[in-house]
Amino acid sequence: MSTTTTVPGGDRAVRPPTAPLVRLDHVSKHFTTKGAGLFSRRTLTAVDDVSLDLPPAHTFALVGESGSGKSTLGRLALRLTEPSSGRVHFEGRDLTAMSPRQLRRTRQQMQVVFQDPLGSLDPRMSVADIVAEPLRVHRGLRGSELDDRVAALFEQVGLDTSRMRQRPKALSGGQRQRVGIARAIALEPRLLLADEAVSALDVSVQAQITNLLAELRERLGLTYLFIAHGLPVVRQIADTVGVMYLGRVVEQGPVDEIFSAPAHPYTKALISAQPVADPTYRRERVLLQGEIPSATAIPSGCRFRTRCPIATATCAEVAPPRLVSSTGHVVECHYPLEEVVA
């Protein structure tokens, strides 16, 4: 496995073409929900025909409003949710075709760090047992060998080993999230799904955990699928950003291009809505009207047209083209704000 050193700045996106670690191939997910009538059913499209590649040792961030389908997409990438159609490949192997046994074995390679660290830890176990469990089950470690490994993991995530015998309840939010991370990296996975992993934490703790994740990525060559609604954190940690709207990735590209020159009007609106911690900073703010439409009634043509400030009649009729630039910047829009070569 090639380890990539991450350098802050613009050259993060330039890397040799490698086989993707995860490949989503026309993946869709529909849910059936109760309709207005007693027996009526409505189909909710959470993810709509998404294809994307996650290169190894890379951080791919998914952003978007709640209801955009970013969490569902993350779960589909690990097959924690069954796709309604499409295929998911991990290290070139089709996850969707695996038997439950094979899938369980492959799962060791892909782990999750959850938003709510307390809820994701079994309240009846000591934090050492929580971290030890995957090692005991999948690696068969016992005794001092196990203890040493757990202690090493605690050290790796910056947890005081004197806390090992405590229950999750006795720990602070940041410490709990460190336990969650220690458990996730115990089996030396290649892929880590961070589902709003820092969103619920206090600002100062958020910075600590963000740093820890960045550090682990470099040290262990991890690939992150990083789901977040906080844009500053995404800008800090991501290599590539995918912007989701109503089940589709409407724009995707290197983090600096997305933040400095967003091509999709939705991306621009999202970034301009983010408050900036500088009272002297002035910018053109794109205020979006209303909120994200229901995923049971996706607008025709371009799904963003109902809130788009520059929508025309074409947008209501024709689905937008998928434009791809040489830097890997992808945008689905009839009137992209920045030049993207088709």
């Binding site: 802050p8 100062s204 600590q208 740093n211 500053p232 800008r235 911690a277 900073y281």
Partner: peptide
């Protein structure tokens, strides 16, 4: 100062690591 330095910048150059306040409240 610590609180402000924890926030990842939206406009300026990204630091390699965020400056954090050690410990907790």
């Amino acid at each position: 100062s610590g609180l402000l330095r924890c926030i990842p910048p939206m406009v300026d150059e990204r630091p390699a690591r965020l400056v954090t306040i050690p410990g907790g409240v």
